[in-house]
Design a protein around this nucleic acid. Structure first.
Length: 875
RNA sequence: GGGGGAUUAGCUCAGCUGGCUAGAGCGCUUGCAUGGCAUGCAAGAGGUCGCCGGUUCGACUCCGGCAUUCUCCA
């Protein structure tokens, strides 16, 4: 009996724990606070700072399993996923790490021991690669790695690899080094006999696959391209968990392992089709199985589907899965969400955040599916109409692109449906239009980031903003950013009192005041990994002086007040609504606070009032802030502090406590020293942001007072306007009722007025050559009344002709009605006639042959206009 | 962040190049018909055409801005 995937992972972890490695939890799959990366795409992401030397690793040896997502940027496999058997969007990366501890010798020995000893993989089906060296880059052959491997494996199975495959770099600059890969030849004995596996390594052969990459970081690449030896050497290994399981379980597809099979079987149950019956369906099964993992884990880490950024990526992945289910498995309505519970159970041991939010995740997905099915059916309608109008024709690129771009209708569905109905699609034209849109978007996003220019080489770049809003400091480095043709300057201080935007709290603004008196405005403060970066309009002329760094303290105070109120409200919401309430987003600035949380259904007015009352009680209690810094994460959890899903916490955390029995949260933000400083808390509104997520907006301090006063002021205006009645509401209702009834009366009067005019006009009917005519000049209440009159006269008379020259609102106008019969018999045309007549009043007009109107400027010309009409009609 | 679309009756939507007294289906009200019905027939109520401004004799229609929302791209 082969090992299960859970057992395989457990063996990996315990193996390295037995080698004194410490297990570290996976960081969230959704990256926050790094503009260059949306999703975690490798195990090393969360350890980046250790390699860069920005901070020191708490453990020398680490083992982990990291959830990763590759859907955008450099690693974009999305369109291939499902069509083959080994590409994935979401995958787990197993790794063991040395931060300045063991190096090549141990890393290689342990890797071999695990592969062949623990997992029992056959030695004669394994190959390893080592870096061959690169004369041009002046790096030598990795002799040491080669020699270590040679202790275990037949030297014929040690292959040399080039810089592309066997030299790893983090970026253009920074830590780098040679790497060594383990490849597994999974072909049958006959095939192995026929073709030497060594020739298939790194050739994208589906059965000769790389399963483990050991990176030895020993160099630092400098900006000029040269390499320095690092003071401390690191090991970073990464092994794709899904392909490892496939190798050990001896399957020919990742999807045949127990990592994916239960999802595929659950899908099969829902659609009543079997996996393995035909290839098109099987692709759909695989797409769904893969995408379910990606979408569910992202939502569990707090990234909801949306129309922008990372949320949009999730939406696209989700829609791709639903699309395949719709096209190939016959799903006509939401199904994808029903696969969540099974997945949550599978991951319960490794990623419990999914199980903990199972119903939330399921609900979000279901709502998203429903919305996509609506999009599909409306696109279907549009495409259908087009094909009806162009039977057996070509759907041109512009139309196909419009369906895709504006209405979200997938291009492959357009193609499928067009072909079913005997049409074709101009795919080249579609691609041209798509490329044009991409170019447009890219041109807009042009932003250049200059290199950091260091002023103080060995600065701590520490943050003192929890304790002070002002301090003496120096500039440690700076750089220039060009965005939309505008220059902005960023600088980092040696000691920084400015809070950088994070955790929903906006960055501080303020000033730097130089010794020489120069003042530089700080517009904003942003976080880049652990750096606090000040954003300024200009740089000080003298960078090498001592500055007073001064945070805008009153703004900071308002921000802190709103942030503390957010914490109090979070607890109040849990009291009022239940323990399912969890933070899903937060924005705290100086004017207001916004808090998104998971909750199904609209909050009642009573619940909102209850939360508001509770928070204000806590404000009046005057609870002193207890701030706990550098608490080990385990201890913080023991204290009962609330942690957020999808937030990355370090080994040591900060706990913000307002009454140990009321509010305790892990938080890096700034807060008031005592809740009484919040003064007053007022909720402005409650609304929905997504399925299962509600939003509350609220204000505190002066903003709250301003809001209340604004409301009272409006009310007092209303009262004054109503004459200061005792009961404003009933007085208002009375006015509204009166208004409604008067409007009705007015309408009635207008009708009567028109009717009276009609009666008087009926007296003036003259018959010219057998045609009853009304030809009059008069005053009318509105231009619309002329139209009304014409059509009413039509009801009363038999096939009449009506010409009215009128003055309405002091403006001259004409209206001509010619019954259809005379239009046909005599060729009279109201439009032509009125253009002729309108010349007399210096105006123009038009309409249809039987009815036309005109307006003009010259009221004195009305009689002439009427005369002109009479002339034409022969009256 | 950039592009495109949408916003008309309680709901789903028509309304082409400015002028068809703003329409359809469903729903609602009333009456009639049938033993009953997601029944049939008839009559009727219900609309600041998202908001603000502009062009025009005239704007649901064209132009600009704003709001809301959908969608694609980055």
């Amino acid at each position: 009996m082969a090992l299960s995937s859970h057992e395989i992972k457990q063996k990996f972890l315990s193996f390295f724990e037995s080698k004194q490695h410490t297990f570290v939890q996976s960081s969230p799959i959704v990256v926050k606070g790094d503009p260059t990366l949306m999703f975690t795409n490798a195990g090393m992401n969360q350890f980046k700072d250790y390699f860069l030397g920005n901070s020191e690793a708490p453990y020398k040896r680490v083992v982990n399993s990291q959830k990763c997502l590759r859907v955008s940027g450099k690693h974009n496999d999305l369109e291939e996923v499902g069509h083959d058997h080994y590409h994935h969007t979401m995958f787990e990366m197993l790794g063991n790490w040395s931060f300045g501890d063991f190096f090549k010798q141990d890393a290689i020995a342990w890797a071999w021991e695990l592969m062949t000893g623990v997992y029992g993989l056959p030695k004669d089906q394994l190959y390893v690669t080592v870096f061959e060296g690169d004369a041009a880059a002046n790096i030598l052959f990795d002799q040491e790695a080669h020699d270590r491997w040679a202790e275990f494996i037949d030297p014929k199975r040690i292959l040399k690899g080039n810089k592309k495959d066997n030299f790893w770099e983090m970026g253009d600059t920074g830590p780098c080094g040679p790497c060594s890969e383990i490849h597994f030849d999974m072909r049958s004995a006959e095939q192995r006999e026929a073709v030497d596996g060594a020739t298939l390594v790194n050739q994208d052969h589906p059965e000769v696959i790389e399963i483990w990459n050991l990176v030895f970081m020993e160099f630092n690449r400098k900006a000029d391209g040269s390499l320095d030896r690092l003071p401390a050497q690191h090991v970073d290994t990464g092994m794709g968990f899904e392909r490892l399981v496939r190798g050990i379980q001896g399957k020919s597809s990742n999807y045949d392992t127990d990592v994916f099979q239960f999802i595929i079987q659950n899908t099969a149950k829902l659609c009543g089709k079997n996996y393995g019956d035909n290839e098109a369906q099987d692709i759909a099964f695989r797409v769904i199985a893969d995408h379910l993992r990606a979408v569910s884990l992202c939502i569990a880490d707090g990234q909801l589907p949306s129309n922008t950024g990372a949320g949009y990526v999730i939406r696209r992945v989700l829609r791709r899965a639903v699309r395949y289910g719709y096209s190939y498995l016959g799903f006509q309505e939401s199904f994808f969400n029903q696969l969540v519970p099974g997945l949550a159970d599978y991951f319960a041991g490794s990623f419990p955040e999914l199980k903990a939010q199972e119903s939330f995740v399921q609900r979000v997905i279901q709502e998203e599916e429903n919305s996509f099915f609506r999009t599909l059916s409306s696109g279907m309608g549009r495409l259908g109409t087009f094909i009806d109008q162009h039977p057996k024709g070509v759907v041109d690129g512009a139309t196909a692109f419009e369906l895709y771009d504006t209405f979200g209708f997938p291009i492959d569905l357009t193609d499928l449906i067009a072909r079913e109905r005997g049409c074709s699609v101009d795919m080249d034209g579609f691609q041209v239009a798509l490329q044009a849109q991409k170019d447009r978007s890219k041109a807009d996003a042009v932003k250049q980031t200059g290199d950091w220019i260091t002023i103080m080489a060995d600065s701590d770049e520490s943050f003192c903003g929890y304790d002070a809003t002002q301090c003496v400091s120096e500039i440690s480095r700076h750089r220039t950013i060009v965005a939309k043709g505008k220059n902005l300057y960023q600088l980092v201080l040696d000691v920084c009192p400015f809070y950088a935007e994070s955790g929903g709290q906006v960055g501080d603004s303020g000033h730097l005041i130089g010794e020489d008196g120069e003042i530089v405005r700080v517009l904003d403060t942003q976080k880049e990994n652990k750096l606090h970066v000040l954003v300024c309009e200009n740089l000080p002329k003298n960078m090498n002086q001592v500055f007073t760094a001064q945070v805008d303290a009153s703004r900071r105070n308002s921000i802190s007040s709103n942030h503390s109120a957010t914490h109090l409200m979070h607890s109040a919401l849990q009291e009022a609504l239940g323990s399912h309430v969890a933070q899903k987003g937060s924005l705290v600035n100086d004017s207001a606070l916004r808090f998104d949380f998971s909750h199904f259904g609209k909050m009642t007015d009573e619940e909102i009032a209850q939360v508001e009352v509770r928070v204000n009680e806590k404000i009046r209690e005057g609870i002193a802030l207890k701030e706990h810094r550098n608490v080990p994460i385990a201890e913080a959890q023991k204290m009962g502090a609330t942690a957020l899903f999808g937030e990355k916490y370090g080994e040591y955390v900060r706990v913000i406590e307002f009454d140990a029995n009321y509010s305790m949260e892990l938080c890096g933000g700034t807060h008031v020293a005592n809740t009484s400083q919040i003064g007053f808390f007022k909720i402005l509104g409650e609304s929905s942001v997504a399925a299962g997520v509600r939003r509350i907006e609220a204000v505190t301090q002066q903003s709250a007072l301003d809001y209340i006063n604004g409301q009272l002021e409006e009310l007092s205006q209303v009262k004054i306007a109503l004459g200061n009645p005792k009961d404003v509401v009933s007085a208002m209702n009375k006015v509204l009722e009166e208004n409604a009834s008067m409007r009705k009366q007015l309408e009635q009067m207008e009708v009567e007025q028109v009717s009276a005019l009609k009666s008087s006009l009926l007296q003036k009917v003259q018959t010219v050559a057998g045609v009853p005519m009304v030809l009059e000049q008069m005053n009318l209440p509105s231009a619309d009344a002329a139209k009304q009159l014409c059509f009413q006269l039509k009801q009363e008379l038999v096939n009449p002709v009506v010409v009215l020259a009128f003055l309405a609102d002091e403006k001259p106008g004409l209206a001509i009605y010619i019954d259809e019969q005379w239009v046909a018999e005599k060729g009279w045309n109201a439009t032509q006639m009125i253009r002729e007549c309108a010349k007399e009043i210096q105006g123009g007009g038009g309409g249809q042959p039987f009815f036309a109107t005109a307006g003009g400027k010259n009221a004195d010309g009305l009689s002439a206009a009427l005369a002109s009409a009479k002339g034409i009609l022969g009256a």
